[in-house]
Design a binder for these strands. Structure first.
Length: 288
DNA sequence: AAGACGAAAGTGGTTGA
DNA sequence: TCAACAACTTTCGTCTT
């Protein structure tokens, strides 16, 4: 057992001191929130990965001279050449390695914000690794690709995370997430069926804290919508939002369009449009 | 005053020549 | 590769409750 105060490693069973005079690796400052931690931490990932070393690492230069300016012997020259070669190789793998580590930490951060189960995060990581392997990230921001990968993983796992939610949890906008999502799906050959509006209805109902009956009506509404072929080509979230709205009105548990639009991440106008179409089909009475 | 409604113009993506 | 097109958004004025 390590005892940082005493600087010793002590066996907890017999009390034998295995090592003493250890260096305390803990910081000498304390941070009470992430804001402070950010300010006080003096080490960590560099701000940019495009220039991997930011001039911090030592390079073997190309002059075949030693520090006194004398020319090297042929034997030394060969050795230096080999060293240079290896340094080049190590540097490259080091940079991509760090890049990957950075991306993975971003993924888990997003996972926290989105409440994603672990296997989805692993899926996202795998997707990112594949993206690196296929060399298709060039020219794209790391954040964008990460967000795209997370969204792909969600869709694969049939989770009802919307583009907007993923975008909020990342550092890029909705458009970027969508672009990267499509890009990844294309390049990595994923086949992802669109989510059913019904799944969104369930989700929205929960977020709106509606009664079970309201959700039931919303699902019924969707059924008729499907039969009327109003679902094809339309955004599932929009239809689900409209169905939820209708159900809330029907049961008297009225929610405003704005409320629903807010959590469904669509506009009120879209809800209205779907809603109008649906009501035309729903002129037969729904009773429960 | 808030919510619902709808027209009009703009956006980004898909499709078909 | 480009233009037409459908779905969706933004904005804003009007009507309803």
């Amino acid at each position: 057992m390590k005892d940082k105060e005493m600087g010793e490693i002590v066996c907890t069973d017999c009390g034998y001191v295995l090592a003493r005079n250890l260096v305390d690796s803990r910081p000498e400052w304390r941070a009470f929130d992430t804001e402070q931690r950010k300010k006080r931490t003096r080490v960590g990932a560099p701000m940019t990965f495009t220039i991997h070393d930011k001039g911090l690492s030592t390079m073997i230069d190309w002059h075949d001279k030693d520090i006194y300016g004398k020319r090297l012997s042929p034997g030394q020259k060969a050795q230096i050449y080999r060293l240079r070669k290896w340094q080049r190789r190590i540097r490259v793998s080091d940079a991509t390695e760090r890049n990957l580590a950075f991306a993975l930490s971003k993924i888990s951060k997003m996972g926290n914000a989105l409440n994603l189960p672990k296997h989805v995060l692993e899926g996202a990581s795998l997707i990112y690794r594949r993206a690196i392997k296929e060399r298709i990230i060039r020219g794209r921001t790391l954040e964008g690709v990460v967000a795209g990968a997370v969204y792909v993983a969600c869709r694969e796992a049939k989770l009802t995370r919307t583009l907007g939610e993923v975008a909020r949890a990342s550092e890029v906008n909705k458009k970027e997430v969508g672009r990267n999502y499509r890009f990844l799906v294309n390049k990595l050959g994923y086949h992802i069926p669109p989510l059913k509006p019904g799944q969104y209805v369930t989700k929205f109902s929960n977020q709106l804290t509606m009664q079970g009956m309201v959700e039931e009506i919303a699902h019924k509404t969707l059924e008729t919508a499907k039969e009327a072929r109003l679902t094809s080509g339309r955004a599932p979230t929009g239809i689900a939002a409209a169905a939820s709205y209708i159900a809330s009105v029907l049961t008297g548990e009225r929610k405003t369009q704005r409320e629903i639009a807010e959590i469904a991440q669509v506009t009120e106008v879209t809800i209205r449009n779907r809603y109008k179409e649906l009501v035309e089909e729903l002129n037969f009475i729904i009773t429960l």
